[in-house]
Amino acid sequence: MNEREPVVLKRPDDLDEATLVARAQDGNLDAFEYLVKAYQGRLFRLAFRMLQDRGDAEDVVQDTLVACWRKLPLLIDVHAFSGWLYQMATNRCLDSLRRRSSHAEVVQEPATLQTTADSSTEPGAGGDPAREAEVSFEMDGLATALLTLPPEQRACWLLREIHERSYAEIATTLKVSEQTVRGRLARARAQLAEKMSPWH
């Protein structure tokens, strides 16, 4: 070519999320793959704590990310991306629970949950074995208690307390008012606090 322009590659890591979202909207696969990597863990943790089943949680993640790719060009505000993604994942979790609801809700035994806790480290436990055991015990209690909440309450609690989404966003996701979100959250906390107490 006569006019050889210098060509600089900006890697996805060097770009802000809004720019990556915009480029994925215009069909850029590198940008989309970067977003998939950035969000798949978060979405999986939400789905796993909602559904307590790896396979079901993976289905939700896959389904959400495929829908994300297909619907991405329709997203108007690039800054709304993460909330939009959480909304799709939450709704898929709730759908999955609704499909299950003909059967009795399966509450896993604490022993089964233990395997998850065993494989993890315990930040904040300060290397004190007794304290570590207590922390792990508390976490298991919480994870188990969580499964006794009605699905929408569980979603509310996870989105707010674990994923730190805003009240406004959670309200949009669940198609209720912010006040309802606050109410559900308060009830969820009260129930969890009570359910956890038998372990202490």
Binding site: E33, A57, S120, E138, M196
Partner: peptide, 30 residues
């Protein structure tokens, strides 16, 4: 106590390598 357990669960889950989807999920999405 709940608030403390919540913090622990949040931090632990985020760092727990087992709480990631299998790589086949990303592969099929891509």
């Amino acid at each position: 106590k709940l608030a403390e357990a919540t913090r622990t669960l949040r931090d632990n889950d985020a760092e727990d390598a087992s709480l990631q989807p299998h790589h086949a999920v990303k592969d099929s999405v891509m």
